[in-house]
Amino acid sequence: MSEAKSTPRPLSPHLQIYRWTWTMAMSVFHRATGTALYFGIALFAIWLVALAAGPRVFNAVQWFFGSPLGLLILFGYTWVLMHHMLGGIRHFIWDLGYGMEREQRIGMARFTLIASVALTLAIWVVAFTFF
């Protein structure tokens, strides 16, 4: 009986070796924001369950979201949501077969970041002005 040989497999280049590019950064960021939203939605679930539980629980939860830490979390969540949404729209454009050229790719990646910040600020300005 001969033992199975385990030859060392070639290792592909990974994050520490590649030079960071806009498209790569925004790709990593798309997954990171998706993961943040994945866990962050638990806060919305808690808020809704508190609403269904009654005024006492609700007031405690509502107080937290109105506190400086709560507002900071909501502000961060808004930005992460906008970034993931714009990143998703970028993926739709690619799915339809457009925006594959170098300049377009980098332009869209930059747009994702800039527009997500702009949208977040716009939402908070509007929310504080009208509500």
């Binding site: 609403l51 609700f58 808004t78 929310a127």
Partner: peptide
Amino acid sequence: VIIVAALAGSNYARALAIV
């Protein structure tokens, strides 16, 4: 996002009425 913005700072009765 619009709904949550409207809910921000609401008291219990208003939040209940919106949702």
